[in-house]
């Protein structure tokens, strides 16, 4: 295999991996402030793409439609937390997780009724042929995927480590009770986390839609991949989510290159199991997690 082909496999892996990473960041964010897994994260991805297409069809210019799609998804994320999760917040993690599963079903069914069952297309953010680097072709939309992933991870890292709000979020993940006693408005923290997770899912959804088209049922699969990426990297840390996403993407594309396309998902999942076997906390996860 020549180096251009190898580079092409790496690019394909990094492109898919960045998409997984964006979804994984959403899982990490919600886990970070609530300690639960939000199984509706994949539906935020679906909603971002579908709503952007909806706004384009209303006649809005593409950049505005894309931003509106992400913001509308954020609104749905906030409303979901406020209306479905907050009233049961004292019921324990299992109940909340089940509510997120129910929420994902509702979002998917409603989307199917509102937008129909067919796949929808969104134009590419920047027109033009793919860019050739050392014999490997990179489509322009891939730069948007990478750029937005970098912005998201830098932004989140800054939020976590440098702002009062971020520190409050981390405090929440350790203990809601203690945080509340320390004067942190935990309800607001949780709601904002869901809003931000919806923004991340929405961004991933709109940036992928020009590459793949979108439809009401794309959420479940990407949710599984993003979840796997978040677990692989180690839940609760933005950098780890990105490492997990890129690793998963690269393993998939290298499996195609050196083994077989039929088994790429199997190989990726076996790797996930192996990593969890050796390091249950994920590649970059912290070994001990204080839980009260």
């Amino acid at each position: 295999m020549d180096s251009a082909a190898l580079l092409q496999f790496a690019i394909a892996g990094l492109k898919n991996g960045a998409i997984y990473a964006l979804v994984a960041l959403g899982f990490t964010l919600v886990f970070g402030s609530t300690g639960i897994i939000n199984f509706a994260q994949g539906e935020f991805f679906m909603l971002g793409g579908m709503l952007a297409v909806f706004f384009v069809r209303l006649g809005l210019p593409l950049p505005i439609a894309v931003i509106a799609g992400v913001l509308a998804t954020a609104g749905i994320g906030l409303a979901f937390e406020r209306l479905a999760l907050r009233p049961r917040r004292d019921s324990g993690p299992l109940v909340l997780i089940i509510i997120t599963i129910g929420g994902s079903m509702v979002m998917k069914s409603l989307s199917r009724h509102v937008f129909g069952g067919s796949e929808l297309s969104l134009p590419a953010f920047s027109e033009g042929p793919s860019i050739v680097v050392a014999g490997a072709a990179i489509e322009r939309q891939a730069f948007w995927v990478w750029g937005l992933t970098i912005i998201a991870v830098v932004g989140l890292t800054w939020l976590y480590s440098k702002t009062k709000f971020g520190r409050s979020m981390r405090a929440c993940s350790l203990s809601h009770e203690a945080s509340r006693l320390m004067g942190i408005d935990t309800a607001r923290i949780v709601m904002v986390s869901f809003g931000l997770a919806a923004v991340l899912g929405g961004i991933a959804g709109v940036v992928v839609a020009p590459l793949t088209q979108t439809s009401f049922d794309v959420g479940a699969r990407i949710g599984v991949k993003g979840f796997a990426a978040a677990i692989l990297g180690g839940l609760g840390n933005p950098i780890a989510a990105v490492v997990g996403g890129l690793t998963l993407g690269l393993v998939e594309s290298m499996s195609i290159a050196f083994i077989s396309s039929t088994y790429k998902d199997v190989i990726a999942l076996v790797l996930l199991l192996l990593v969890l076997f050796v390091r249950p906390e994920g590649i970059l996860g912290r070994a001990t997690r204080e839980k009260v």
């Binding site: 092409q8 496999f9 998409i19 992928v208 699969r221 990407i222 290159a257 396309s261």
Partner: peptide, 15 residues
């Protein structure tokens, strides 16, 4: 081959 729902086939096409 690819799976229903896959989002990128450049790896397969490079083969």
């Amino acid at each position: 081959t690819f799976n229903p729902g896959d989002t990128d086939m450049t790896a397969q096409l490079t083969m």
